[in-house]
Computed example of a mutant assay.
Amino acid sequence: MSGKPAPSKIHGGHGQIFWFIIKTYKNGPMTQKLDQVHVSKDAKFVPNVKVSSPLGSFDATFLLYPSAALALIMFAGGTGITPMVRIIAHVVEQYHNGGLSDGVDVVLIFWNKTMEDIIWNDQFTDLSQSESDWFRFIPVLTQPAQSWKGLVGRPSMMQINAILDDYLPDRDVVTEKHALICGSNGFIKSVEDAISGEFPKNFLHAFEG
């Protein structure tokens, strides 16, 4: 089994504990098995885990010395949220440690089928309220319940432009505007096609594999 590690919470303080984001599927044979493992009593049955960096090949050095007007627009589909969590946690830590100045914006657009599928919905909602000056969270559903009041639909140029007009209205004056994409191959292609005229290729990164 291979996996991607993630912080236990968005606000730093991870220590030496190793955490994973694993989405459990009702009829999924693998995730159901993992869900039943209790490390305290079943330690000998825990499989060996090969781990890659949550950021993969993404070069995040520009976050160490960000420009005065930097925007990260994150496009995540389902479990494609994993690398975004680590980057958001880094930005939170930098803000709280005084490593970032005002002017760095993060917009997370997160597509899922249903509201129940939204991983870390409460944490992202709380962060969007406590850090509203720089973090925006926009969940989008493709198979919503009738009670859903948020955005609906698959990624499209019209939808994404409308979201950015609402949540990042000054994007035309942003010095650096990076698009980060993670999800299924079909999701990544849909987003890339929708934003091809909005971001330079060297400021667009798709997390794959």
Results as ranks from 00 to 15, higher is better:
1 M>Q: 07
8 S>I: 02
9 K>W: 08
10 I>P: 09
17 I>K: 14
19 W>S: 15
27 N>E: 12
31 T>Q: 03
31 T>F: 07
33 K>V: 04
43 A>R: 05
44 K>Y: 07
54 P>Y: 08
58 F>V: 02
62 F>E: 04
64 L>Q: 14
69 A>W: 02
70 L>Q: 12
73 I>P: 13
77 G>K: 06
78 G>N: 09
80 G>K: 00
81 I>H: 06
83 P>F: 10
88 I>C: 00
91 V>L: 13
92 V>F: 13
93 E>W: 08
94 Q>N: 05
98 G>C: 09
101 S>T: 14
106 V>Q: 10
110 F>I: 04
113 K>C: 05
114 T>H: 10
115 M>E: 15
118 I>G: 00
122 D>Q: 13
126 D>A: 15
131 E>Q: 14
131 E>G: 03
133 D>A: 13
136 R>H: 12
136 R>P: 00
139 P>I: 01
139 P>N: 01
139 P>A: 00
140 V>G: 08
143 Q>K: 13
144 P>D: 02
149 K>V: 05
150 G>Y: 06
156 S>Q: 04
160 I>Y: 05
162 A>D: 14
165 D>W: 02
177 K>G: 00
178 H>K: 11
183 G>A: 09
184 S>F: 00
195 I>G: 07
196 S>D: 07
208 E>R: 15
208 E>H: 12
